[in-house]
Each structure stands twice: as structure tokens, then as C-alpha cells.
Amino acid sequence: MRARVFITPKKGVLDPQGKAVERSLHALGFAEAHDVHLGKYIELSIEGGDRAQAERRTDEMCRRLLANGVIEDYRFELQD
């Protein structure tokens, strides 16, 4: 099974990178672009187990290492 994990800055947490990219987009003439946030995308393969177990395990991976709950939110998708 393949997991695709998306990690983004928590709402309200300062995101200077997002701000800088937004300013650059505006400078290029993309005035319609707002609320730019930069995050991380992580892919991994999961061996064995059923879907429910893979979901539980991936969630645990996110909580314990992949994301820092103080500053980041995460979500993930599983593909067979």
C-alpha cells in the first residue's frame, strides 16, 4: 500500500515562507493569489496488513515523527 502524507503549517502559525512566495506571485502579476502556505509532501510504502491497520499506523507515524502537532497539521491518503 502506498501512503501520501500532506503536512501544512497550522492555521494561525506564522508562515514566513508562504508570505514571501505570495509577495513574489503578486510581483509577477498574479494578484489573485492569496493565503499561500508551504508544506511538505511525503510518500511511503506500507508492507502487509489491511487498510484499517495501515491507516492507524500511518496516523501514528504522523503524530510521532512526520508532523509536529505544535506547528503543523497533517492528512494522508492510502492507495492500494
Partner: peptide, 8 residues
């Protein structure tokens, strides 16, 4: 937590 400096 400690995050990227405001100035980048």
C-alpha cells in the same frame, strides 16, 4: 516549537 526566522 522553533520555526523559520520571520526574515527567512
Amino acid at each position: 516549537a522553533l520555526i523559520r526566522n520571520r526574515s527567512l
